[in-house]
């Protein structure tokens, strides 16, 4: 791994989950890398792929089930019991609240964020195994998706990079 002068030069960030809290960390890290002059590749796999699917990337939701850290009505409130998290509309409600907080911090919605990272020179890749498994074509993706990659190609273009799995 090339860390000459103790500075990171390149990162490859894998986004593997399709929830709001699964997708945002990878986007924030990729954007943050570009802002520091670090080369950034984003590789979307499995349900993480929904973060770059044209039809769905605008409605990514927080998961209110199986999330024991989830509290209501805010981050220091009461723990949300799993069975209440399953009530229809709960995830949409929690997502709305979270989006409001993120907007205050000027964190863009997913489609705008992906565009910002791409405009900043970050590369956006989709995992071939998932594309085949989900029967997707390049038409299904947002225009910022650069290429569908095999895992081998992903490793090739990650030469000299730190690989971060989220």
């Amino acid at each position: 791994m090339d860390n000459s002068n103790g500075k990171i030069k390149k990162v490859s960030i894998i986004v593997s989950r399709g929830s709001l809290e699964g997708i945002y960390p990878g986007l924030i890290m990729a954007n943050g890398a570009r802002m520091e002059g670090i080369e950034a590749n984003l590789f979307f796999t499995f349900f993480g792929l929904y973060g770059i699917l044209k039809r769905y990337m605008g409605s990514i939701r927080i998961s209110t089930v199986g999330n024991p850290a989830m509290r209501v009505p805010d981050a220091k409130g009461f723990p949300l019991p799993t069975f209440l998290g399953a009530i229809p509309g709960m995830s949409a409600f929690a997502t709305r609240m979270m989006n409001k907080e993120m907007a205050k911090l000027d964190i863009p919605p997913v489609p705008e964020f992906v565009e910002m990272i791409h405009d900043a020179g970050g590369k956006i890749y989709a995992c071939k195994a998932t594309v085949d498994m989900f029967h997707l074509t390049t038409q299904d993706f947002c225009p910022q998706m650069d290429r569908v990659l095999t895992v081998g190609e992903f490793y090739e273009l990650s030469a000299g990079a730190q690989i971060i799995f989220t």
């Binding site: 000027d106 910002m116 900043a120």
Partner: peptide, 27 residues
């Protein structure tokens, strides 16, 4: 201002900022 504010309020696109101030535009 952060990148989004530069875009939305300042009317300066991301690409232009990176072209003008390469490798860490806002810093």
């Amino acid at each position: 201002a952060g990148m989004r504010r530069m875009n939305k309020v300042g009317g300066i696109p991301t690409k232009e900022l990176y072209a003008l101030f390469p490798d860490g535009p806002i810093k």
